[in-house]
Design a protein around this nucleic acid. Structure first.
Lengths: 250, 250
DNA sequence: GCAAAAGTGTTGTCCTTACACCCATGC
DNA sequence: GCATGGGTGTAAGGACAACACTTTTGC
């Protein structure tokens, strides 16, 4: 029933059951190339955008790909690798970032077996005006994307679904907005990401009842209509009041 | 700002900007040993259990570790590797299984850098009476576990948290129960996993209103009290009626 | 004064919670 | 007959959904 891997069996024999030389054990393991791909979301002109680059690869000429890199050359943590890629590509290092999933289909890279750990990150486009445009690095509207290099469309879709779910349960969305934002901007964000329309009064009531928005006493400026109040999200209060959610619902 | 990896730059130079030989590119990538660890949950005697094995490793002598193996020797999909490990260790291949997260701290394995993809699986202990007990392979009560080999406690905790969340949103739990189960068994399962007490009437009402349990017209037998009705979960109906959940709540 | 969005309350419905009694079975 | 859990209903409170009018600003 249980078929022990040959490598481990060999080690066991040498040591009467227990493995002493773990270095040697690890060296005997097969190895796989690892990449980290970052799905970097931004929000602009009431649309969810993603940062993409033209593919380097001849066979994907003209297609776009996610920002990625092989990882873990030396003693780099996975998360650090993702932060490094962000930093290299966008110049920012204070960006929200979370691991989403690892993709491991054998056929997903035409050059051979490659494992990819996908990270999702959210940043405020206004704070990061792109200076570099190598390989047409630029923002793309998520909803209008079709083909991409490798299995990057699949990875993007997975991260988008992750974001849709996550933004309803955690205050991630504020990372996509300026520090000060109006309720309209916040609602536009939710509507764009979830792809639905929401009732304005109910939306405001909901956030009012959470009591996590700080009215900073400022107003929008240079808008062609009645200016709205500006708010900040109270991260500190949120952290303190995180409650355990219980309720069966499927 | 953007520091391109040396390997890619080298390829670019050779090809006037575009990379043609992707095999060569992938071969130039650094490689990392990969393992897949399975957190195999079961439910017995009203307690959540996890399947563990005594560590092979001298320095973790006496400690328990998750069921894992290095993966992707040839062209094995990640998910397939997890299914293979399950099959090898438990003899079962019809088991619920899902990827949870990838662990990549440089120091997590004493033998050197190893990446581990953690999978969570749920199986019915009754269907799988352990025959093999190599290295004390056996079920352990989740709540009473302390130290484990490697960072396996951390992985287990992550999977347990994942399970607590997931079981409230998806009908996973039925994989831990026999095909036919009573409402009391179902409630015990939820109470054990979530670590809370639930009101019996409200619990039953909740599942009644979902209308996803099929009354199979049988009763419990050999119980020292009034026997309860037995149900099956209507997976087919659930699949058809999956609804998109919307509601901001954090 | 017109366009465009800000701001604001009430009502009905549904879901959740809290809670207590009789029933069927094994011993 | 007693111990054990099975099975059931109701009322109150809280959350969510639907819905319209007045206000403020730029032009």
């Amino acid at each position: 029933m249980k078929k022990e891997p040959a490598v481990i069996t060999a080690f066991r024999k040498k040591n009467g059951g227990l493995i002493e030389n773990v270095q040697q054990l690890v060296e005997s393991y097969p190895r796989v190339p690892i990449t980290v791909d970052c799905v970097i979301f931004g929000f602009d002109e009431n649309e969810l955008k993603v940062l993409l680059i033209k593919s380097d690869i001849e066979m994907y000429k003209g297609k776009y790909s996610l920002l990625g890199d092989f990882a873990i050359d030396n003693d780099e943590d996975l998360d650090e690798a993702a932060y490094r890629i962000l930093k290299e590509r966008t110049g920012m290092d204070d960006v929200y970032l979370e691991q989403v999933r690892t993709f491991g289909k054998p056929s997903r890279h035409p050059g051979g077996r490659v494992l990819t750990v996908a990270y999702c990150s959210l940043l405020n486009i206004q704070h990061h005006k792109l200076k570099i445009h190598d390989n047409d690095l630029d923002w793309h509207t998520v909803s209008s994307l079709k083909e991409m290099a490798f299995d990057h469309k699949e990875i993007l879709d997975a991260c988008y679904q992750w974001l849709q779910k996550r933004i309803q349960e955690h205050p991630l969305g504020f990372n996509l907005l300026p520090d000060k934002f109006s309720l309209r901007e916040l609602q536009n964000l939710y509507e764009a990401i979830l792809g639905i329309d929401m009732d304005r009064r109910n939306f405001r009531k909901k956030f009012a009842s959470m009591d996590l928005l700080i009215d900073i006493g400022e107003m929008e400026e240079d808008v062609p209509h009645r200016p709205g109040k500006l708010y900040k999200f109270d991260f500190e209060k949120y952290e303190k009041s995180k409650r355990k959610w219980v309720g069966i619902d499927f």
